[in-house]
Write a protein that binds this DNA or RNA. Sequence first.
RNA 1: GCGGCUAUAGUUUAGUGGUAAAACACGGGUUUGUGGCACCUGGGUCUUGGGUUCAAUUCCCAAUAGCCGCC
Length: 365
Amino acid sequence: MLSQPTFVPVGTQATVKSLSPEEMAQIGIEIFFCNTYHLYLRPGDKAVKKFGGLHKFTRWNGQIITDSGGFQVFSLAKDHNGAGNLVKITEEGVEFRSHLDGSLHFFTPEKSLQIQHNLAANYIIAFDECTPYPATKAYAQKALDRTHRWAVRSLAEHKRLNKELDQDLKLYGVIQGSYYKDLREQSAEFICSQDFDGIAIGGVSVGEPKDKMRQAVDYSLPIALKANKPIHLLGVGEIDDLFDFFGQGITSMDCTLPTRMARGGQFLHRTGNSTHDYKNKFKSQIMNAKYKMDQTALDPNCHCPTCQKYDRAYIHHLFKTQELLGYRLMTLHNLAFMINTTQEIRDALKAGTFDKLKYDWLGRH
RNA sequence: GCGGCUAUAGUUUAGUGGUAAAACACGGGUUUGUGGCACCUGGGUCUUGGGUUCAAUUCCCAAUAGCCGCC
């Protein structure tokens, strides 16, 4: 079982970029997030099944969750500007083109679940449509109703596959509803009424301002909490988000940010004491000139393998020269920072000192 | 020593008689169900001194420096 709450690093292509499973375990990662869409295209879910599933394929002894493919189908389609929209959504499913070779593919809820069962992660996600931002209410409603029907189909196929393949994968249903209060509530009620193992909140962090994102979650969270199931928040994970959402009962969230930031040279660190250095969101750019001669650790109080051994000056140099070690050391640090911060939150929640901890970090409640 | 060519951003180079552009580098920023990508943004006494002109980075002369060729 997962610790609660848990931060989930993203490893789209069945790898948390640049890290070995040993390193992931070393910094306390319990689970990572793979993508159905990418793995379906390469190496193919059938290949992974032949290898014995993602765990055997990757040699990762921890847990894994896979996305449904829904998000990628919609988000990647947008990158191909030009010859119109390459994604066609019907009641049956979604027709889309591979971003690799342009080949045509068709995902249905059943297909997504079949792929995910072939990949055989521990946790899997129902096929949903991630409504783009902004969306009209009429469209959001239409997409939501369809996503709900897909949820039912996903669940049925999931149960069939668990039995057929003698597996015990756990399925999360996804709440959508764009930024409309009644739709979010309606979606939460519906998803919670179904026999899912967990609830996911989706459709946020799609380009909207942060207060809207927070509001969208707030609309559905109280209802989701009543289901007394794990609640995963999809695609969210800045430092303040950890406090805001774990503090409200979200049990896990995944985010590309710490790893992607790491590859861009940004490192997480805790600045100051109780002052709200919040403006910089606890991040700095290692390539900035001021770090060239800085012989302190990325975060002087961090106990991660990177900070125990290396200083900013060296990592600055590695990034300036685009050396691979830089990406690895930085990824290791940023993820350790997320994991450790989550651990602090976990402990504080248990000890009843969460409010103080949050205020110490953010300078607000 | 003689002849020729060149001099524009940190670098390599465009360009123009009305105070200038690209690439890379440099400085700063953006990134929320992942492209190690990408994007945004800042910076120039156009080598120096004269001359022609309403106006010169641009045309002319000289100086200086570099490159090439010849003795």
